[in-house]
């Protein structure tokens, strides 16, 4: 069985090289750069970029704005998805709806963002419809939904992209967890319709999908293409803000960009660890006892 051990350690090594090494090496370089130990402008060790980032408001407002967009998008999606998955549960299993619900998953963020821009901007399709029907008097009376201060365009686009996913997820859980049977059981205990929803259906669905929901918050927080097209200069979501710092012509912004990336990576890692220790079962599988 010697040979098997070799394949095993080789596989492990390859995994570490592909998965861990790039992130690790990247972080090392980013750290050195952010302290100006390496890089075009390196003038010797300095902590000034870190001080700027941590004490300044730009980074934290980006993180805060990203978090706000993510929470709004996910919560709104959840409400829509739960309503659809529960009230249309039969049609979601077969028929036109069961296929149609997959269609939005064919849209990458880029395309959906482009569509929303053409649809919701001041000169977009909706505004033209409003004008043609006489609801709008001129282009400026159409509300700012794109490149707006509250990230409305970003949130709408994210909601449209995520909701179908949650609908499918809930619809699947409803069947695999055999919620119907639990509901029947609860009915024999005398539960009302409202109680069935509050005490049986929703808790099971949300508990089973909790980690996925958290992961989606993280995904939306890190999204790039959608805010790049639909966001504005300030407030900016974290990915857009970081890339902009790195690509600026002002060389003194680059170390700040790296410091922001490191902080972002650290935040994601700590959230992941927190999720891992809170939800061991989710990460466990049948392969380990």
């Amino acid at each position: 069985m010697k040979k098997l051990y070799n394949i095993k350690s080789f596989s492990t090594l390859l995994f570490l090289i592909i998965v861990v090494l790039p992130v690790f090496c990247g972080l090392v370089y980013a750290t050195l750069y952010s302290f100006e130990i390496v890089g075009i402008i390196n003038s010797g060790f300095t902590t000034k970029h870190w001080e700027d980032i941590i004490q300044g408001s730009a980074f934290w407002s980006s993180i805060g704005f990203s978090f706000y967009v993510a929470i709004c998008s996910v919560v709104i999606s959840l409400i829509f998805a739960l309503a659809m998955a529960l009230s249309w549960k039969k049609n979601l299993q077969k028929g036109a709806l069961s296929t149609a619900i997959y269609l939005p998953l064919c849209f990458p963020g880029t395309v959906m963002a482009f569509f929303m821009f053409q649809f919701l901007s001041k000169s977009g399709f909706l505004s033209r419809l409003g004008f043609a029907s006489g609801v709008l008097e001129d282009i400026n009376s159409f509300p700012a939904l794109i490149n707006d201060a509250y990230g409305i365009g970003i949130i709408i686009t994210s909601v449209v992209l995520i909701t179908p996913f949650f609908v499918i997820l809930f619809s699947n859980i409803y069947h695999t967890e055999n919620i119907e049977a639990y509901k029947e059981l609860a009915t024999t205990f005398g539960a009302s319709k409202r109680q069935l929803l509050q005490k049986v259906t929703l808790p099971i669905l949300l508990k089973k999908s909790s980690v996925t929901i958290y992961l989606f918050i993280i995904f939306v927080m890190g999204s790039y293409e959608i805010p790049l097209l639909l966001g504005r200069q300030s407030p900016q979501m974290i990915s857009v803000a970081t890339v902009q710092k790195i690509q600026r012509f002002n060389l003194y912004d680059i170390p700040k960009g790296f410091a922001m990336s490191i902080l972002y990576v650290l935040i994601i890692m700590s959230v992941l660890l927190f999720l891992y220790f809170r939800n061991r079962d989710y990460f466990k599988s049948e392969t380990t006892k």
């Binding site: 990247g26 370089y29 890339v243």
Partner: peptide
């Protein structure tokens, strides 16, 4: 970790290499 990170942030940190 890399799965959750935004790909563009990944690109930033390993771009140098």
């Amino acid at each position: 970790i890399p799965y959750l990170l935004s790909p563009v942030i990944m690109a930033i940190i390993f771009q140098y290499y």
